[in-house]
Write a protein that binds this DNA or RNA. Structure first.
Length: 296
DNA sequence: GTTTTTATAAACAGAC
DNA sequence: CGTCTGTTTATAAAAA
């Protein structure tokens, strides 16, 4: 068939001149959700009454701060409680310095966020008091936290709506009582799919790879590294690693990669105690690190 | 390589 | 009327 690219212009096209976004595309890998393939399943429409959050999973994260990393102090479900990272070694070094915040914010302003639309929507909804939001407020939450979208091609709102409609993770909740305010419905997270979303969030390369890292509850569960780290290792070495495989040099490589990518600045202690709690060469790393890292 | 997922664009209908 | 919301189809690219 012929090229389909010259289609009739939509009278109210939402994305004028959006085609040049290609160069900006996929600066980051998008997160993937294990959502099912058949989007055809009719989605249940709940009735209003914020019942939708009986869930034990009152994620008390995403506070009011505009800092990216503060999104990731989580409440229950075994996720990190204090913000944002445990100080395992007992000193009070914060996990991320102000310069790190700036770094991430700057990144978020110019680059596409490393989250899929599903995850952005999920974060927005979870952040809301009633765990439900109208689409307009989903827009504004995303916009506020990820200034990238302020200058992004306008089609992203279309993508948000598209995702809400198609993605089984999200459910429409009719707002009952007349026009409380605004039009349209509220959107919430289908509790059935919430674990999937949380898992997808944990798989994000960064910074949530750090922030959502769940310290192993039992010694037996600490056998593997978080996803981001294993993928970095695999890319650099062409094979999989276990924590026990990681020597000081490898750990240094990981550290440096993380710093280059802006997910860590100088808080090496948090890094290796979080990810490699049983690593024997901590001290070697610490010394190497001190001599190499400069603060910005 | 194939399949699945995600992003993007667009047409369109209905509500406001 | 125009704008916003929501659904749907199509296509391409990325990821698995």
């Amino acid at each position: 068939m012929g090229p389909v690219t010259g289609m009739t212009p939509d009278k109210r096209a939402e994305a004028p001149g959006a085609e040049k976004a290609a160069g900006l595309r996929q600066i980051y890998r998008m997160g993937s959700l294990p959502e099912a393939a058949d989007a055809a399943r009719p989605k249940a429409t709940l009735v209003d009454s914020e019942s939708a959050d009986d869930e034990l999973t009152n994620l008390n994260w995403l506070h009011e701060s505009t800092n990216l990393l503060t999104y990731f102090s989580l409440g229950s479900e075994g996720l990190p409680i204090v913000s944002p990272i445990y100080d395992i070694e007992g000193d009070n070094v914060p996990s991320f310095s102000p310069s790190c915040y700036q770094n991430l914010e700057k990144k978020s302003a110019t680059s596409k966020p490393p989250y899929s639309f599903s995850l952005l929507i999920y974060m927005a909804i979870e952040h809301s008091p009633n765990k439900s939001l109208p689409v307009k407020e989903i827009y504004s939450w995303i916009l506020e936290r990820f200034p990238y979208f302020a200058t992004a091609p306008t089609g992203w709102k279309n993508s948000v709506r598209h995702n809400l409609s198609l993605n089984k993770c999200f459910q429409k909740v009719e707002r009952s009582h007349g026009k409380v305010n605004g039009k349209g419905s509220l959107w919430c997270v289908d509790p059935e799919y919430k674990p999937n979303l949380i898992q997808a969030l944990k798989k994000q390369p960064f910074p949530s790879a750090l922030a959502f890292y769940t310290p192993p509850a039992s010694p037996t569960s600490r056998s593997s590294c978080p996803h981001y780290l294993t993928s970095v290792l695999k890319q650099n070495h062409g094979r999989s690693f276990k924590e026990s495989d990681i020597d000081a040099a490898t750990a240094m490589m990981l550290l440096n990669t993380s710093i280059e990518q802006g997910i860590l600045d100088c808080k090496h202690k948090q890094f290796y105690t979080l990810f490699f709690p049983s690593l024997k060469s901590k001290k070697i790393i610490a010394e190497n690190f001190r001599s190499e890292v400069c603060f910005s």
